[in-house]
């Protein structure tokens, strides 16, 4: 399924999108499909599957540790695309750092995304200034290159970013790294209305620090089309490393609660 269809389907139902992130291969590659299927059963709309990098500068400690667990269990891009292929039923987005894309070859990487049914690509260390080669590759294979917008993004940059953004816009809720936070950042609402003034078209998904049903309700009320939850899921995985059944059922249950908040 494509991102575009998903967002228009949700719009018709007057629902927000729940986008879930997990690191592929955490805690072991064999468990990733089961983990994502638990999220799907719980009602997740889009899966953002992380391809772990050795030096994830935009990630907080929870996802850093997930990356380390995954890499130490032999995760690599070849395996990643094999796993991604096995996930079905909802749109899939790949999140990774630029060096892994670059090293595989931009076209090869994007072609492998297409072959595995991945519809979007997020590269947090690739700003628009450096994105032209990857944009060209993504256009060629019809993959949505998803950009991030932050509270520090100026009007001028925002315009440029909106001009090339496809799929959805990743709205970074705060200044900082990924990680579950107690309270929603105060910069979200002004940022969302600022973006809405410039563009009414592209779906806006808010991420970084979103970990509770109240956060989701708040961002949707403020005009977002979706919310991205990552570290809160990874924390459940981390907490249940020794108990697969409990891990999967807690993930499903938590997803169900979060999804309820988007309705």
């Amino acid at each position: 399924m494509k991102l575009k269809e998903k967002f228009s389907e949700l719009r018709k139902r007057d629902e927000g999108a729940l986008i879930g992130f997990v690191t592929a291969g955490d805690p072991i590659p064999e468990l990733t499909v089961d983990i994502v299927n638990s999220l799907i059963r719980g009602g997740i709309d889009i899966i953002e599957l992380g391809l772990p990098f050795s030096d994830p500068i935009a990630d907080g400690v929870i996802i850093q540790k997930a990356s380390e667990r995954s890499l130490s269990e032999g995760m690599n891009p070849d395996l990643y695309f094999e796993i991604a292929k096995k996930i079905e039923g909802i749109p899939k987005v790949c999140l990774t750092y630029y060096n892994l894309v670059l090293h595989r070859g931009l076209e090869n990487f994007v072609r492998d995304c297409l072959k595995s049914g991945i519809d979007g690509l997020i590269v947090p260390d690739l700003p628009i200034e450096e994105a032209t080669p990857l944009l060209n590759a993504c256009d060629k294979y019809n993959i949505n290159l998803i950009f991030l917008v932050a509270p520090t993004t100026t009007e001028e940059r925002l315009k440029k970013i909106l001009h090339v953004s496809k799929g959805f816009l990743y709205v970074v809720s705060l200044l900082g790294v990924t990680g579950a936070r107690e309270k929603l950042s105060e910069s979200v609402k002004p940022l969302l209305s600022r973006i809405r003034k410039s563009s009414s078209q592209i779906p806006l998904a808010v991420g970084f620090g979103i970990s509770k049903t109240e956060h989701i309700k708040e961002v949707l009320r403020a005009g977002a089309d979706g919310a991205i939850v990552g570290s809160a899921f990874v924390r459940i995985i981390e907490k249940n490393l020794d108990n697969k059944e409990r891990m999967l059922s807690e993930l499903e249950e938590f997803t169900r609660e979060l999804k309820e908040a988007t309705r």
């Binding site: 935009a58 520090t152 200044l175």
Partner: peptide, 20 residues
């Protein structure tokens, strides 16, 4: 202007940092 020494260099940083 892009901070390139021929092919090397550039600005591969998260969006939050770009204005800084």
């Amino acid at each position: 202007k892009l901070g390139r020494f021929d092919r090397y260099g550039g600005k591969f940083a998260p969006e939050v940092l770009m204005p800084a």
